[in-house]
Design a binder for these strands. Structure first.
Length: 638
RNA sequence: GCCUACGUAGCUCAGUCGGUAGAGCACUUCCUUGGUAAGGAAGAGGUCACCGGUUCAAGUCCGGUCGUAGGCUCCA
């Protein structure tokens, strides 16, 4: 038998007999590597560890703790789960079971549904199947053989999938014990490699994601290469639950919902301080960047929405009302109203760009099933603005916007900005020519900027392409916040114009843009990001005065008068509680600054300062403290 | 909209086999006047989401409605 040369990622080479498998190579290198191995990469192609290699090749041994290995592990665990389900529910039909980020799922067509008890049983069965350590065997089939095999088994979904596989592609299946599943692979060599897994939840899911198809039963689960990683992941899920903005919103008394106005938040006085703080901050930036703020109507004759295209594209998401002869629509967006404001007067090219900001309340009738806390609501406001400009002003405007976005995200301590350009969707208004022009303008500006960006084909708004900004929060979750959308359609529909240098009438371009996005959603995302520990400038209660006993009530009141005069948001906790209880209460309410005043302080004319999560900072002069706090507020430090 | 789960005091949650409702925190009052994360006692607080059905009897069983939550493109 001849020998072949294997090249490793570090470029070292070794000779092996032809027909050697990656697992044999791994064993040759060391038993620990062989144990951790889940798959191989042979000449950059993912493959099973058992695949015989008969020519010179570059190989990489993939372990479960790498990204590629984790994906293999996730996918193999989905198979193990399918095997367990088929063992416990022989009538279940399998469909698909891919790996997704940190999790996997598998959709089954079964009579009835899976209960939590079923999940436990399935997980127990999976443990049993894992311990029996079956060999996972790859089989390659001809198209007809595959069709016959899965048809004989009654796996109609698999038959449907095989029918759609490209005739040129190899059809493969993987078996473990008596279970066989159509799959491209690769997979772990034996079921015993799958140890640290947990089933997470069940839900309904439509076959191929189409609500006209059969509803399948989906089970989500996760798996890691070590118990430590699994525990860390589960812990992260717990942490996310603790920081859930709905939970924090209730605990900190910031907002609530009522069934008589579904999905429409009520912000309490405390929540409104934060909400208005966000608005005030944006207004300051507007002043700096040359925006003018307007106030526009809430309700418009349907005529407007017909002209704008919303009637055609968005009516299912609009609140509407009939009043006598006329039909009105509650505005879901500000843009059509803004075109009316633009058209109210004549504009010279000298007036452009006009940057029209509006915090107007918007209503969108979102489907009941998609509503969620503050992140998906029916009543909201945006830090919305429309920029009316000439086509050659677009570049400068977008550069300014990039700068503004960066400033805002720095203020809120959001790192890891990523940018996506979304292009023309299937359901779109306007000529393809206009779309192409808009898309190439945005691509140009993006390429000139230093930002990295990806392209989301077909994800644009129906009136124009857009640039979306994503950030990562404190738990590394991705959120889309800012958006910049180019629009050549609305100006056309509303016949907007400006008088150009040569006296002719020209069509302006509209840029729709929001930096925080919806204030409601931003509120929720930021609440989770900061975990309820708001910076001083946004905190609903900035300072609380805690008298040690009733003897110093008068002195405590004199302190609150000074705080009041300094324009700070304060509280006085003059309940008959002991100081420890008052401090505990203030810490739980996440109040930034606690001022403890007792007889010592009253005599010296000072306050003892305690900052949230920091403990006792010692006595300080009140005037001095107020200066420090006002500085901190002015700088918006986080 | 569809699937599943849930809805009991302001909040967090018990409530077994169907027999008319409970705790802790918060609240009110009283005692305690204290020094950096919970002093003590008493009291008040409920149309068990809503509507209907079964039953001698429903928080509990059945049906419906409303609301809330997790999902519903991530190609075998």
């Amino acid at each position: 038998m001849s020998n072949i040369t294997i090249t490793f990622p570090d470029q070292s080479t070794r000779s092996f007999p032809s027909g050697v498998s990656t697992i044999e190579i791994a064993e040759n290198i060391g038993p620990r590597l062989a144990k951790a191995a889940v798959a191989a990469r042979i000449n950059s192609e993912l493959a099973d560890l058992s695949l015989p290699i008969d020519t010179d090749a570059e190989i990489e041994i993939i372990t479960g703790d790498s990204d590629a290995g984790h994906e293999v592990l996730l996918h193999s665990t989905a198979h193990l789960m399918a095997q367990a389900v088929k063992a416990l529910f022989p009538n279940a039909k399998v469909t698909i079971g891919p790996a997704i980020e940190n999790r996997f799922y598998y959709d089954f067509d079964i009579e009835g549904t899976f209960s939590d008890k079923d999940l436990e049983k399935i997980e127990a069965k999976m443990r049993e199947l894992s311990e029996r350590d079956f060999t996972v065997q790859r089989v390659e089939l001809t198209r007809n053989a595959a069709l016959k095999k899965f048809d004989d088994m009654g796996e109609t979904y698999k038959v449907e999938i095989i029918e759609q596989i490209d005739e040129k592609d190899t059809i493969s299946a993987y078996s473990q014990d008596d279970f066989i599943d159509l799959c491209r692979g690769p997979h772990v060599p034996t079921t015993g490699k799958i140890k640290h897994f947990k089933l997470l939840s069940t839900s309904g899911a439509y076959w191929r994601g189409d609500e006209n198809n059969t509803m399948l039963q989906r089970i989500y689960g996760t798996v890691f290469s070590s118990k430590k990683e699994l525990d860390e992941y589960l812990q992260k899920l717990e942490e996310a639950k603790k920081r859930d903005h709905r939970k924090l919103g209730k605990e900190l008394d910031l907002f609530f919902f009522h069934s008589l106005s579904p999905a429409s938040p009520f912000f309490t006085d405390k929540g409104a301080v934060i909400y208005n703080g966000l608005v005030r901050y944006m207004r300051e930036l507007y002043l700096q960047y040359g925006y003018g703020e307007v106030i526009s109507p809430q309700v418009f004759d349907m005529e407007l929405w017909k002209q704008s295209g919303h009637y055609e594209m968005f009516i299912d998401n609009m609140f509407s009302m009939e009043m006598g002869e006329r039909e009105f629509g509650l505005k879901p967006m500000n843009c059509p109203g803004h075109t009316l404001m633009y058209s109210h007067g004549l504009h010279s090219y000298r007036d452009l760009p006009i940057r029209m900001a509006d915090f107007g309340r918007l209503h969108r009738f979102e489907k009941a099933g998609v509503l969620s806390g503050l992140t998906r609501v029916r009543s909201m406001a945006q830090d919305d603005a429309h920029i009316f400009c000439t086509p050659d002003q677009i570049g400068d405007e977008i550069c300014d916007l990039f700068e503004m976005v960066q400033t805002v995200y720095d203020t809120f301590n959001f790192k890891d900005l990523s940018i996506a350009l979304s292009t023309r969707p299937e359901k779109a208004l306007g000529e393809v020519k206009l779309w192409n022009k808009a898309e190439s303008t945005l691509t140009d500006v993006l390429e000139k900027s230093n930002y990295k960006f990806t392209i989301d084909e077909g994800e644009g708004a129906f009136y124009g392409p857009k640039i979306d900004f994503h950030v990562k929060d404190a738990l590394q979750r991705d959120h889309q916040l800012a958006t910049i959308q180019l629009d050549f359609v609305l100006p056309e529909r509303f016949k907007l114009k400006y008088i150009a240098e040569d006296g002719s009438e020209k069509r302006p371009v509209m840029i729709h843009r929001a930096i925080l996005g919806s204030l409601e959603r931003f509120f929720g995302v930021y609440l989770e990001h900061c975990g309820g520990d708001f910076p001083l400038w946004l905190a609903p209660v900035q300072v609380t005065v805690l008298p040690v006993s009733e003897k110093v009530q008068g002195y405590a009141e004199s302190i609150t008068q000074k705080l009041n005069a300094a324009g700070l948001r304060f509280q006085l906790d003059d309940k008959a509680d002991k100081i420890g209880a008052k401090i505990r209460q203030a810490e739980l309410s996440k109040i930034n600054v606690m001022l403890i005043v007792g007889e010592k302080e009253a005599e010296a004319g000072t306050v003892s300062v305690r900052r949230r999560h920091q403990g006792d900072l010692g006595p300080m002069d009140v005037a001095e403290l107020i200066d420090l706090l006002n500085d901190e507020i002015k700088q918006r430090s986080s």
